[in-house]
């Protein structure tokens, strides 16, 4: 093995480790999600699961072709969310909401919530990514 090859390998390993650290320091599976927020308007809640380790909001929303798509989005744990205004009864099936979500890179209709806006304007932000993926606004391309 040549010295140059060994040196290059070592540097790659080092950067690889740093990459693992960076992704590991994100929350559960958040590296599976895009950094940009997708906005889904006129969504109808089907299920609100106030659950550990993650709260789940499931909802139906029409895509660009007018077809109903069933989504599932995760948020923080009830213990974290209850400290910032959420409650077990805050969101209920049938509610019309606007969803700001970091969509899965896999393309599946799942994601990590940024926030939910209720019909009356009440906002429920995620405890982890409610201010964006790196503490910014989190606002990106909308669709």
């Amino acid at each position: 093995m040549g010295r140059r090859y060994m040196a290059a390998s070592a540097v790659l390993v080092a950067f690889g480790v740093l990459g693992v650290c960076r992704s590991a320091s994100a929350h559960h599976g958040s590296s599976a999600y895009a950094d940009q927020v997708t906005v889904l308007k006129d969504a109808t809640v089907t299920t609100f699961q106030w659950a550990n380790p993650h709260t789940i909001v499931m909802f139906d929303v029409k895509d660009d072709a007018g077809r109903s798509v069933h989504w599932a989005a995760e948020a923080g744990s009830p213990s974290a969310l209850s400290l910032i205004g959420w409650s077990k009864s805050a969101i209920q099936p049938g509610d019309t909401i606007t969803v700001y979500v970091f969509r899965a890179k896999s393309g599946s209709p799942v994601g990590r919530l940024n926030k939910i806006v209720m019909a009356d304007g009440t906002e429920y932000r995620d405890s982890q990514l409610g201010n964006g993926p790196r503490g910014g606004s989190g606002q990106g391309s909308a669709q």
């Binding site: 999600y33 380790p53 599932a72 989005a73 896999s106 799942v110 994601g111």
Partner: peptide, 23 residues
């Protein structure tokens, strides 16, 4: 105290509907 439970049926839902499709 709060009530803070990890419920198997709910975590299975989480895996089925969120975590696994997101990978």
């Amino acid at each position: 105290f709060d009530e803070q439970l990890c419920i198997p049926s709910q975590v299975l839902d989480y895996l089925k509907f969120v975590a696994d499709p997101a990978q």
